[in-house]
Amino acid sequence: MLVVIFLRALRAVPFLAASIVFAMGAQAQAVEFRTITIKVGYGPGGGYDQTSRLIARHFGRFLPGNPDIVVQNVPGGGSLKLTKMVLGSEPSDGSVIASVSEAMSYAPVLDPQNANFDPLALQWIGSLVNEPAYCLTAKSSGVDTMDKFLRSDFLIGATGKSSVTYIFAALVKNGLKARFKIVTGFEGTADIELAMQRGEIAGMCGVSSYNISGNRDTLNLIGTFGSGTVAGKEKLIRFSDKIGDTKVREAAALIETTLQFHHPLVVPPGTPKETVEALRKGYMEMVRDPAFLADVGKLSEMTVNATSGEDISRLVSKQLKVDPNVFETARNLVK
């Protein structure tokens, strides 16, 4: 009797093994995307909008199910409005991805009254750019040197107070006692550029090299933020190097760290681990794809230097562990 039972058990082993393999295969194929919407926290025409539309043309090829991807603009507060939507009301099934400012990673520390959320709750997918940012002015403004930029009375345009266009302008204004005033309320860099062309404002801060590649002849590059250089661009003075106070310079360096993951994509908290992993994997495959890189070359002089979602999460976590006194100084620096 025992022999019969043993033989039956042996015959069942292949079927059991096959069932396990089938189940594992089914689990591996469980993530499949349909239509995805990339929501952009800025208005049409600016850098975040352009890169999001670029990504939308290619990303689906690297995701299970090869989904169609559409883009929707949700401007407001330098992407703070969209960030709050992602943390509160957007679906967590991978059908919505958000293109938000990298400044959202420390917005709750610098502006806790308006940005009352946990940056670590955001699921970071990846970012395209890791390079310095600029302050620039229209040549028609007459503000064409560092000295004039710091000592003249004029207007700088920005989106919202949680955006890089405001934060980096405020860093210069407060850290170096500049005299310019910051005007907020623009939907994106395209609107700021239009206001510069009209002579309504003189310039803006916190923009990357590809934002200026199409109209370089009409702009003055004044100085930079962040470490490193941009290939083919003149070497400029780094604003934070001009700050004399050691504590203030340390706070400025903290703020500049977000330039390591410029133009990030995020998904809501609660998005399944397998979905996040599929998006992260597909993103890093996309940024190495020759067709994608060729399309980037048609758009601008942007150099793709991607940061993975895992690395962004580690950087954000590291940021939030900084000495509270440094955060306090940074908070005062960008008021």
Rank of each mutant, 00 (worst) to 15 (best):
I5H: 12
F6G: 11
F6V: 14
A9D: 06
V13W: 00
P14N: 03
I20L: 14
I20T: 10
V21W: 00
A30N: 10
F33S: 08
K39Y: 07
V40L: 00
V40C: 08
G41C: 06
T51Y: 01
R57V: 03
H58W: 03
H58I: 07
G60V: 03
G65D: 06
N66S: 13
I69L: 09
Q72R: 11
V74T: 14
G77N: 05
L80D: 02
L82F: 11
T83N: 00
S95E: 00
V100S: 03
L110T: 08
D111P: 01
D111A: 12
Q113F: 10
D118A: 10
S127A: 12
L128K: 11
C135L: 04
L136G: 10
A138T: 07
S140C: 00
G142H: 05
V143I: 15
M146C: 01
M146S: 08
D147S: 13
F149K: 09
L150D: 04
L155Q: 15
G157W: 04
G157Q: 07
S163T: 10
T165V: 05
A170S: 08
V172C: 07
V172G: 04
K173V: 00
F180E: 02
V183D: 11
V183N: 03
V183R: 15
T184K: 08
T184S: 12
I192D: 05
I192C: 02
E200Q: 14
C205W: 07
G206C: 05
V207Y: 05
R216N: 09
N220W: 08
T224K: 09
T224P: 06
S227E: 14
R238M: 06
D241C: 06
K242P: 01
V248R: 13
A252P: 07
A252T: 02
E256A: 01
E256Q: 03
Q260T: 14
H263W: 06
P264H: 01
L265Y: 15
V266Y: 07
P269G: 08
E274W: 01
G282T: 04
M284G: 02
D289L: 07
D295C: 02
E301A: 14
N305M: 09
N305C: 07
T307I: 01
S308V: 03
G309W: 04
L320Q: 04
V326I: 13
F327L: 01
E328K: 15
T329F: 05
N332W: 12
N332R: 15
L333E: 09
